[in-house]
């Protein structure tokens, strides 16, 4: 599914690199479309709430490769915000 096909309401908030707020207003609304929707369908939630921040930080403490993963995640979040900005203004 192309990114532009989604109609997602996006609110821009200025924040730091690691501290970016999730870019959606409605809880549960899909966030990104770069192949993640397909992957999300096979994700099973555990009984324990793992905590979103606790999941991300595991990449950072995993060493250089992990920092690259975290950087990629935040870069994608940033790019997605700019991509969806026009949709939001319509």
């Amino acid at each position: 599914m192309p990114a532009t096909a989604l109609t997602i309401s996006v609110r821009w908030q200025k924040s730091g690199f690691l501290g970016q707020k999730p870019h959606r207003c409605t809880p549960g609304t899909p966030v990104s479309t770069r192949g993640e929707d397909k992957e999300r369908s096979v994700i099973h939630l555990a009984y324990l709430d793992a905590g979103s921040g606790s999941l991300i930080v595991q990449a950072v403490v995993g060493g250089v490769a992990g920092v690259a993963v975290a950087a990629k995640l935040y870069w994608r979040r940033l790019v997605d915000r700019f991509r969806r900005q026009p949709t939001d203004q319509r």
């Binding site: 501290g19 809880p27 990104s32 939630l45 905590g51 979103s52 990449a59 060493g63 993963v69």
Partner: peptide, 28 residues
């Protein structure tokens, strides 16, 4: 800090984002 800043993000979304960014068993 990450817990605080990502408090509103669902773990489902974050798992998908991490997987798409290349998080792997080796990294874990």
């Amino acid at each position: 800090a990450m817990q605080h800043r990502n408090a509103a993000a669902s773990t489902t979304d974050v798992r998908a984002q991490l997987r798409a960014a290349g998080f792997s068993r080796e990294l874990l």
